[in-house]
């Protein structure tokens, strides 16, 4: 049987083939770099030793058991969920409203307002944290859950608006015109046409806001008061005390939760138009 030569392979000089192998090896190694720390972290959450070193001492679930009976972590989890849910709820409504105005209407002062809407995204966390802390101290709002929620809404609005506006920008206005031709008034057009079509974008924005709120450390750290510790704050204070396998277990649970949220949000966005937007 004659061996068939790949014409492409004949044209490709040997030197370039090596280049291609190096590129592939580099690509694969980069993914190892991205995932190795996470995998190591998860592996050592199952390690039967009080000390997290590079040595393996056998499999155990005891650190997860300890996690679920830890009262401080339970309280932090409740705070985190409460804060994130309230912040997400408010910022999703505000963000969707402002998106409709920005994409549909022209008005006086739109440009500077657009800039104001983007600023919370690009400003460094630490700067936003500092200015909110100063503000709350000056106007004498006691630091606690309320100040955390206020701060989270302030940055969540911008992220919700970005996602919803992207969705609105690719919206087919002929559908709304068709509804109006069929004698739907403004409200009915919005309720039965615009809103359902916009829903995947709104949900994706809400999930993004929820993830950001749940994960935020720096801004929460500055605007938290006594008794309002969230999960990231709890992890931080535990890490400051020293590395323990319980932190690994807690981290592994948080990683899993974030993974699920991301997969859910990608799935939601895919449900709309088959295109996935990566921020």
């Amino acid at each position: 049987m004659t061996k068939r030569l790949n014409p492409q392979a004949m044209k490709t000089p040997f030197r370039f083939k090596i280049g291609r192998y190096i590129l592939t090896a580099h690509g694969l190694l980069s993914y190892v770099f991205l995932y190795a720390p996470i995998i190591i972290l998860i592996i050592f959450s199952f390690n039967a030793s009080k000390f997290v070193t590079g040595r393996w001492h056998g499999f155990t679930l005891i650190w997860y058991q300890k996690l679920f009976v830890d009262e401080a972590i339970g309280a932090a989890l409740r705070n985190s969920l409460y804060i994130s849910l309230v912040a997400t709820f408010v910022s999703t409504i505000f963000g969707t409203m402002v998106s409709l105005a920005m994409e549909r209407y022209n008005f006086w002062g739109k440009m500077p307002f657009d800039a104001l809407l983007y600023l919370p995204i690009i400003i460094p966390d630490i700067a936003m944290a500092v200015m909110l802390l100063l503000f709350f101290v000056m106007v004498k709002i006691p630091l606690g859950k309320l100040t955390i929620i206020i701060s989270h809404i302030a940055f969540d609005i911008s992220f919700v608006a970005i996602v919803v506006r992207a969705r609105l920008a690719q919206f087919d206005s002929a559908l709304e015109e068709a509804a109006q031709d069929l004698y739907a008034n403004n409200w009915k057009t919005f309720r039965y046409v615009t809103f359902p079509l916009l829903m995947p974008g709104i949900l994706a924005g809400a999930l993004l806001a929820f993830t950001l709120s749940l994960d935020d450390f720096v801004i929460t750290f500055f605007t938290a008061g006594p008794g309002s510790s969230t999960l990231p704050l709890r992890i931080y204070s535990l890490v400051k005390l020293g590395v323990t396998p319980e932190i690994n277990a807690l981290s592994a649970v948080m990683l899993l939760a974030s993974f699920l949220l991301v997969v859910l949000s990608v799935w939601l966005q895919k449900g709309g138009d088959g295109k996935v937007d990566f921020m």
């Binding site: 993830t211 948080m254 993974f259």
Partner: peptide, 10 residues
């Protein structure tokens, strides 16, 4: 999209 603190801890 996972927690920055957790990734730093790793």
């Amino acid at each position: 999209w996972t927690n920055f603190l957790v990734r730093t801890y790793a």
